[in-house]
Amino acid sequence: MQTPKPYMNPYLAGIGLGLVLLAAFVVMGRGLGASGALSSFVTLGVNAVAPAHAQTNAFYKEYLGTPNGNPLNDWLVYEIAGVLIGGLISGLIAGRVRRTVDKGARITVSTRMIYAFGGGILMGLGSKIARGCTSGQALTGGALLSVGSWVFMIAVFASAYAVAYFFRKQWT
């Protein structure tokens, strides 16, 4: 098995990420996103199981799409498909693609999985309440100086630092 290459210098990676974001602004007039695409997938699922339910709920309705009502025919869904491809390319080049569970040494795999699932639920809720995540709000809104995005970003760091002590075993 090849040894993984070291990560890119953080400032260089940041400039790269910033230029990608800038390209989105220049080409499309919009920024990046991630949680929006996940909402499209959830809406697709709900619509497949209970179409009447999805069509009467204002949240799902927004993601159902027009005119043929395919939630996957959406800019962010295509963008997130690109994210998967780009992440895989980078991982392959650097020798970092391998089946593993990322966790600190002091917890078991099953504890890590429970935390990952619980954290995912909170993150899904939080990103929907805030109308976006680290991509759509923090990066995109941050660069556009949107007040709500900066409030979101500060709140994320504040609450993460506030609770970090209680979960230190998982990571350190």
């Binding site: 997130i80 994210v83 980078s90 569970v101 966790k103 999985m113 954290g119 680290t134 991509s135 979960f167």
Partner: peptide, 30 residues
């Protein structure tokens, strides 16, 4: 409020929505 909930999720889950996609595709089961 969304940011506060999101922050707890970040420490608990370790990823955000975008980074989670990159982690998944490179083989991270978590």
């Amino acid at each position: 409020v969304g940011g506060l909930v999101f922050g707890v999720g970040f420490v608990l889950g370790g990823y955000c929505p975008g980074t989670c996609c990159v982690a998944s595709v490179t083989g991270k089961m978590d």
